[in-house]
Design a protein around this nucleic acid. Structure first.
Ligand SMILES: [Mn+2]
Ligand SMILES: [Mn+2]
Ligand SMILES: [Mn+2]
Ligand SMILES: [Mn+2]
Lengths: 218, 218
DNA sequence: ATATAAGTTTAAGCATCCTTAAATTTATTA
DNA sequence: TAATAAATTTAAGGATGCTTAAACTTATAT
């Protein structure tokens, strides 16, 4: 077990890799809200410790070891999230920040206990997959951003981006949860906003909001 | 919310004050397993920040602010302990270390939630009182160390010291829990060990062990 | 009362993880 | 292709919280 900072870098890099984003100093700095210089500094350390492959000015990649390690941090994070949601009853806009701190503190034994209590969940409260102990990732349902669903088409919410609490809170307010059926009624070319039907109500949502909600068609 | 190190110093000082130990550089260093020099260093910072009263070579005291703050760290610790014990099902020799890390990570809101789930417990799994939000301490039952209970006398276990996991684990093994009735059958002057009756069995325990188990007579 | 022991502080230094500013490299655009 | 912009790294430095060694203060024992 390394320190908190190392764990935060590694899990951030892991998540970027998973979402097929090219991992650059830049991107990490923004995610972690620190300077580029600090990131460069740390990348050297991570590289020296064998967690990442790093050459000056080039993209960053996790090594096998790094990926294994990072997947377990993400695993801990997501198990905490669902524990906090299902057992403790925190709303889905509160669990991420809490889990982000707890993920570095709990022992593996405790996380295993939590997982057992939850009966081995495969997805976190935002629909993100929980990596297994071996790093394997549960099969995700196909999905596209709600912003790309065509008018007249319906689908189910299978995932939402979990990095903005205000966004998540608003989703709750309009009754948008995982599993909910949504129909796109209209797209306004004026501002690219969408008129959607959810819970038998029609609601207008911005394109930006819609692009962070993921829908499984059929 | 300060950093982890500050919180560890403060809660250690608080616990020492509660047990009427004179708080000295020395004692803190031992508890935190760091050098005296490091403690002196930190005492200056804690003093500058108004958490403690400190003069070179003198005993240390928490200020009003310091005591308030420290009590809340101890509160978090003990709520975590009992949550881990009762809800998650960790044995009492595992909860301290885990709680010691979690106590710095959870938000006040989460701790409140946990407390609510537990129906506002007053004591942790080792019988230590859980300070209230206002710093108030639940009334503790009178107790004396088992090592000082006289031959022929019975009493109930109301508290055990929680700083040695091996000790706690052994207590579990011999069926010693909070609330158990214990009778002192004999004291061996040879090594000051005790012959006790518990769960209708007779068992010999060392004086050192007995001095860490606290008994309410009558 | 004095010597010795114990406890505490000071001094110097190290690792970690940040910062800003300047220099360098790579990417983009005219 | 050359100029400009963007991204990245290097350099210098700061805060934190440790370390060991040496100096100093207080407590204890003869
Ligand atoms: Mn999250
Ligand atoms: Mn999540
Ligand atoms: Mn404890
Ligand atoms: Mn305890």
């Amino acid at each position: 077990m390394q320190n908190i900072s190392t764990e935060n870098y590694l899990s951030e890099i892991y998540k970027l890799e998973q979402s097929n984003v090219k991992v650059k100093t830049n991107v990490i700095a923004k995610k972690l809200e620190i300077s580029n210089a600090a990131v460069t500094d740390m990348l050297k350390k991570l590289s020296n410790n064998g967690w990442i492959l790093y050459e000056r000015y080039k993209n960053i990649e996790l090594t096998k070891n790094g990926k294994e390690y990072a997947s377990q941090i993400v695993r801990r994070h997501r198990i905490w999230e669902i524990f906090l949601h299902q057992i403790v009853g925190l709303p889905w806009d509160k669990v991420h920040d809490e889990a982000h701190r707890l993920e570095h503190s709990a022992s593996d034994e405790l996380v295993d206990k939590l997982e057992e209590m939850l009966e081995f969940p495969e997805f976190d409260p935002h629909g993100d997959p929980i990596p297994g102990k071996d790093g394997s990732i549960p099969k995700i349902k196909d999905s596209i951003p709600l912003s790309k669903v065509r008018v007249g088409i319906s689908g189910k919410v299978v995932r939402v981006n979990d990095f903005d609490n205000n966004f998540l809170n608003y989703l709750s307010q309009i009754g948008l949860k995982l599993g909910k059926k949504i129909t796109v009624k209209e797209k306004l070319s004026f501002d690219n906003s969408l008129l959607i039907k959810i819970n038998d109500k029609q609601i207008n949502i911005s394109n930006k909001l819609a692009s962070n909600v993921f829908i499984n068609l059929n």
